[in-house]
Design a binder for these strands. Sequence first.
DNA 1: CTGTTAGCGCGTTCAG
DNA 2: CTGAACGCGCTAACAG
Lengths: 345, 345
Amino acid sequence: MPTIQDVAKRAGVAPITVSRVINNSGYFSEETRERVEAAIAELGYVPNRLARGLRIKQTNTLALVLTDITNPFFTTLARGVEDAAGEAGFTVTFCNTDESEAKEQKYLEVFLQQQVDGILLVPAGSSPDSVHTAQKNGTPVVVIDRRVPDVSTDSVRCDSEAGAYKLVRLLQDLGHRRIAMLGGPEGISTADDRLAGYRRAMAEIGQTGNGDLVQSGSFTMSSGYEMVKTAVAKTPRPTAIFAANNFLAIGALRGLQDCGLRVPEDVALVGFDDLPPALTTFPFLTVAAQPAYDLAQIATKLLLARLAGEAPETCQEIILQTELIIRQSSGGSLIRNGGCDRSLE
Amino acid sequence: MPTIQDVAKRAGVAPITVSRVINNSGYFSEETRERVEAAIAELGYVPNRLARGLRIKQTNTLALVLTDITNPFFTTLARGVEDAAGEAGFTVTFCNTDESEAKEQKYLEVFLQQQVDGILLVPAGSSPDSVHTAQKNGTPVVVIDRRVPDVSTDSVRCDSEAGAYKLVRLLQDLGHRRIAMLGGPEGISTADDRLAGYRRAMAEIGQTGNGDLVQSGSFTMSSGYEMVKTAVAKTPRPTAIFAANNFLAIGALRGLQDCGLRVPEDVALVGFDDLPPALTTFPFLTVAAQPAYDLAQIATKLLLARLAGEAPETCQEIILQTELIIRQSSGGSLIRNGGCDRSLE
DNA sequence: CTGTTAGCGCGTTCAG
DNA sequence: CTGAACGCGCTAACAG
């Protein structure tokens, strides 16, 4: 592969001149620019970013650490990050921790070694280690979607507590009193906050100790499937179910169908996180939807501002609200079409 | 940030000795290893991969160029690549071209500058430029999912022609003769091949010139929505629709519902690419499913073999088959539950 | 406007 | 088993 030296020789100039042309920095005449560009084209020269990064101590790269790349919420997030970073001339490197703190640590280490300029992190657990590691290294971090305890860091997320509260209140307004909760992993702030929102709403109707109606699992379809079966086996049977994320809701729906229970006639169902329209055969689930794309844009811009030294000294904590989207699965008087073809509506 | 020199000083050894310990190469005593590791821990030393890559001319990084990261087919692909690469100690860098050849060129340039060791490419168009650019640079490429004309390169994909043929034959076996096709972008091999499969099946029932039944658009929900409306406006109305990918199928379903047409009673519908169960409220669409994860694993292993110099000289072209998954949307005698709750089945 | 010198952090080469 | 010298490709700092 040709180097900047080869280009310089061919153009009859010094390497630094080639560098100036490539990066459009400093001064050079129009004529030398042409000569250099001709040489670059003739040789098929490709600048080496490793060498450049080593020299200038900046790579124009951001890292995005996701916990589950198969979840549309996170792919939408990824789009938002990529779009915002791209506009600023930054490249994004993704990875997928599979909700494992060990993987998270490993990837983070790799990113730091790669000298990424900043990190957008969806934490896989409640350990502050990753954030600390990055901060000790002097690499700015913005935490997305979830809280991490015991660290001071920029963070951008949705108000899960309020979203959950709204959903459960909706169910209560529809007349439900016995509402089961299918929760996410304990220690994950989104799971904890959604549970808190549920508890607050339930307390308002005088139910405080309804431990038997609450379960926690993982953010997967199979977990939703298992938990819902346990939930509907209780006596008396819950009349409504709140699933703490999109995969849990789908699993719950499957489980209810397998039990021969109709949604919403026999059991109402609401979930957290919407499914993209392009992936949904029949929009059916009532959900609290998070503005994933906006979340990502805001987080990325905050990180870029930090890198540019333009952000305020103190840590920023930005919290967006969810949107309640009411569809058939919650049932009740808000939906009026009572035919058998509701799911084709 | 501490460098290898700092660690060396602290441990009372030469930098090269630290290097040997880190990379577990060459010889060193147990005692020096301990001293070096202690120094690394005390200083919080993080090796600089830029410097390492610059020196050894290898980054242990693969690039994965995707056209649409919101499509589950591609996220599954990404998982497969990441898993296979991770096992071999390689890191994966993703990007998203949005089906734009210009973006593809831009990202490719960046990846080459970053000195990635190999590239997995889902081409956004039919131009061989990207593959040529990489090959001229000496960076191995494996093309995934789609064919690229006029280049000799490794490639791994599914047999779209045969998959489409199977789907259309299924419709024909169910009695359909007037079958409309909602195609993808011309020039994208998967779109072209699926059209070819459709044509072959239609020719077998004596229909060769059914140009009015064929449309082409983009691989999006809105395109499917538009095209299906045009399709059902024809006289006589088609009795079945073949959508060339998952987003097109969803869009078609929406369009049919908006026209007051029931699926499958009024119009049968089949699609290409399955939707992940965890994202599907009601499994409903009959599809030709592609083994995305396996595809990715095979492609990655092929690329890694190339890098290791273990692959045969000649270009490999690996073609997998699709699986026909029959659900309600194709209708007909193969489904027997004729109730109104079929979509909740 | 252009060039020279030096060094980013690491690992190969060769010598002990 | 350990180390010294050198260079990977690039650019900051300074000279001219």
